[in-house]
Each structure stands twice: as C-alpha cells, then as structure tokens.
C-alpha cells in the first residue's frame, strides 16, 4: 500500500534515535526524543494500533518531554560524555 511512507518514517525514526543518543546538549536530546516518540506514534497509527498511538503521542511526545526538561533544569544542561 503506502510501504514507502512507512519506510521513510522508519528511517527518520532510526535517525532521530541516533541523534538523540549522540548529541551533547541535553535539551536538544529531549527535543529529538520527542520527535522519535511522535514518529513512533504515527507508525503505530499507520499499523492500526490507534489506542497505543494516542498514548504514545500524548505521553511520549508531550508529557515526557516536559518532565525531562524539568529534570534537566535541576541538573547540568551539558553532558561531559
């Protein structure tokens, strides 16, 4: 059907995960992690699991990013490794 769309989304998902792992700035890592969660939500919705996609979009892309930014404001913003 639209296999190339799912393939492109999956490629972007892997790229977002690698960027979130390798970036030094923690805020940038959290933003990339939100991108990862949103792409995962779109993929889940395309595969028919709308229930899981709703949870992933609301919790993974929304609330988790806010909570992680709040946790980063307590510790240092830049990571040494």
């Amino acid at each position: 059907m639209i296999w190339w769309l799912e393939l492109a989304l999956f490629g972007l998902l892997v790229v977002a995960a690698l960027v979130a792992l390798s970036v030094r700035d923690m805020i940038a890592a959290v933003a990339t992690l939100s991108v990862y969660s949103f792409l995962a939500a779109v993929l889940l919705a395309l595969m028919g699991a709308v229930d899981v996609a709703l949870t992933e979009a609301a919790l993974g892309a929304g609330v988790t990013g806010v909570l992680l930014v709040g946790a980063i404001s307590v510790v240092d913003r830049r990571t040494p490794d």
């Binding site: 709308v50 229930d51 709703l54 949870t55 609301a58 919790l59 929304g62 609330v63 806010v66």
Partner: peptide, 21 residues
C-alpha cells in the same frame, strides 16, 4: 472508539501542562 481513561487522562494532563508552561 479507540481511547479510554488512560489516554484521555494523558491528553488532558498535557493540556494542563501546556498552560503551566
């Protein structure tokens, strides 16, 4: 339809956190 208590709670909590931010 798809959804339920947990999903609705997460969505409404995201709205409240948006106002807080």
């Amino acid at each position: 339809s798809p959804g339920g208590g947990f999903q609705a709670g997460a969505i409404v909590a995201a709205a409240l956190l948006l106002v807080r931010l």
